[in-house]
């Protein structure tokens, strides 16, 4: 037991960050699985973080309520953004969602000044958020989401997304509303990112406008690229590895970030389907569906 306490006092926060990053991995899984390269997840995370933190601070709502409010707000913003933006394809979508992240940042910096309120804390950010995030809460959400994902893939909507992933046009001529399901995936991703943002705000006790910019978006993307999107567990694995790795690489000092960049390039070049791509598993899973 003492070994555990010692481990926890040293690495407890790393573990919790890993769990939050796993949530973010799930959030980007939804879009990448559907073939959308969206870099908006960091922005959605910011929405969830700000909304939940403000509710906790000013309304004193219990954590689950704050978190859900943050997640739903992010999902709603995702819906508003997705409606126009999802018509764009690959490169254009990536650019538009990149711009969205920047708009969130600019809004966070200037909101108080223009509204006359003291809500978001401007460029300094919002601190003094009560530390309410617990490992148990994180693990509970992850288990719940994993269960949801398993059921999701067996559902009508899950099959529709699988069809879109493989061949959009064919899916459309099967009566599947491709644009609608892409929006669904986008909104689900935004919702989960918002949830992760809420957890993060109540763990670090701080939300700042510069925590959610391009590099944050890229980190989230890296989880999914490393883990692979053939299976929802891929981004979870990627998130765990990429959270723990920098700890193991502390000795590299300033050069630590190099590894992240290298991993992205090497995985794309030599492991394009990611680390977690057990073909036998997907095969058996789908065959199993058919029998069930």
């Amino acid at each position: 037991m003492t070994v555990f306490t010692q481990f926890w006092s040293t690495y407890g926060s790393v573990v919790q960050f890993a769990l939050i990053n796993m949530l973010l991995g799930i959030s980007i899984y939804f879009t990448l699985y559907t073939g959308l390269l969206s870099l908006a997840n960091a922005g959605f995370m910011a929405v969830g973080a700000y909304v939940s933190a403000i509710l906790t601070i000013h309304a004193g709502t219990p954590l689950p309520i704050s978190l859900l409010a943050g997640a739903f707000s992010a999902g709603f913003i995702g819906w508003l953004l997705g409606l126009p933006v999802l018509r764009l394809r690959d490169v254009y979508l990536a650019i538009a969602t990149l711009g969205f992240g920047e708009i969130v940042r600019i809004t966070a910096v200037n909101f108080d000044k223009f509204s006359g309120l003291t809500l978001l804390g401007g460029a300094q950010g919002l601190d003094g958020i009560p530390k309410l995030t617990t490992p148990a809460g994180l693990i509970f959400s992850l288990i719940l989401l994993s269960f949801f994902l398993i059921q999701f893939h067996r559902s009508r909507a899950g099959r529709a997304l699988a069809a879109i992933r493989r061949d959009e046009n064919v899916a459309a001529t099967m009566g599947i509303d491709v644009a609608g399901y892409k929006l669904l995936a986008f909104v689900l991703g935004a919702f989960v990112a918002g949830l992760a943002g809420g957890f993060s705000a109540h763990l670090t006790r701080f939300v700042g406008p510069n925590d959610f910019t391009f590099s944050a978006a890229v980190n989230i993307l890296a989880f999914a690229v490393l883990g692979g999107t053939a299976h929802w567990a891929g981004p979870l694995l990627g998130a765990a590895i990429l959270t723990v790795l920098p700890e193991a690489l502390r000795f590299m000092g300033e050069y630590r970030g190099i590894v992240n960049g290298l991993i992205l390039v090497l995985v794309i070049l030599y492991l394009p389907r990611g680390l977690f791509n057990p073909k036998w598993l997907t095969r058996r899973k789908e065959a199993g569906h058919a029998q069930a």
Partner: peptide
Amino acid sequence: PHLATLISSIGASIFLISAAQG
């Protein structure tokens, strides 16, 4: 696909920024 090239360029950019930092 486009997606792969885009991601590769992102990786390269992180690499170059971190290298400059070092």
